[in-house]
């Protein structure tokens, strides 16, 4: 069976949409094939995904699994493909059924016990997701959800484990989207720990810095 998921890859500081296609077909011997220019971190992902699935109580399919990361000519180098690949394998092998798979983009790195690790560039990914048509939201590892939630126009769902992501996608549980706390964060974090009054003397230098700050970028 074929499963398709939406995720993102980082290119510089921009995120580009990537489609993860997982096809699970019967075969004599179990085999994993990963195509779509995966760099080392993505190649190793199949091992992490396998154990995370088993340790979360799912079954590793004993069939031929082909995973394709499209566009095929874009090199992919991030661990954030773990979760979409895992969900793709589960959907492809018929262990989960979900109509939410097409509506939510998925990113996240998995630990071997099935919990989520923070992902790099969650903010850029959310920004790209917000611009895409047909996406309702995005599943983001809970440690990175705060930065992604700053973006308006997309529901950011914080998930802390593979099982939680699965239960959400199959509709067993509902997760409240992370609220955008931009204004609160600004009030909370826009403070400096030090002050110019700590500097004794040097009034000439301070004056020059003042001029620089007034006329500068």
């Amino acid at each position: 069976m074929l499963a398709k998921l939406q995720t993102f890859s980082l290119l510089g500081i921009d995120a580009v949409p990537v489609e993860v296609e997982v096809d699970v077909s019967p075969a004599g011997l179990p085999k994993n094939v990963l195509v779509g220019l995966p760099e080392a971190a993505v190649k190793e992902s199949t091992h992490r995904v396998e154990r995370a699935m088993v340790n979360s109580g799912f079954v590793r399919p004993q069939s031929r699994v082909v995973i394709n990361l499209a566009p095929a000519d874009l090199p992919k180098d991030a661990a954030s493909f773990d979760l979409p690949i895992a969900l793709g394998i589960l959907a492809g092998s018929g262990q989960i059924e979900s109509d939410r798979l097409g509506q939510y983009a998925v990113v996240g790195e998995l630990a071997l016990d099935g919990t989520m690790r923070p992902t790099k560039g969650a903010l850029s990914m959310a920004m790209t997701a917000a611009k895409q048509d047909g996406l309702r939201g995005m599943l983001v590892p809970s440690p990175s959800a705060g930065e992604a939630a700053v973006v308006e126009g997309i529901d950011v769902m914080a998930v802390s484990s593979l099982t939680q992501a699965v239960s959400f996608l199959t509709g067993e549980i509902d997760i409240e989207p992370c609220p955008s706390r931009l204004d609160d964060l600004f009030r909370e974090l826009a403070v400096y720990d030090f002050d110019f009054s700590d500097v004794r003397g040097q009034e000439m230098a301070k004056r020059a810095l003042c001029v620089a700050a007034a006329g500068g970028p």
Binding site: K120, G121, A122, A149, V150, F186, E188, L189, A190
Partner: peptide
């Protein structure tokens, strides 16, 4: 501006836990 700067820190994974936005 804050989001621009935060994006750069986010892509290199330099955001500290509990500080999802660079407001300074």
């Amino acid at each position: 501006e804050s989001i621009e700067t935060t994006r750069i820190y986010s892509t290199v994974g330099r955001l500290k836990p509990g500080q999802p936005l660079l407001a300074t």
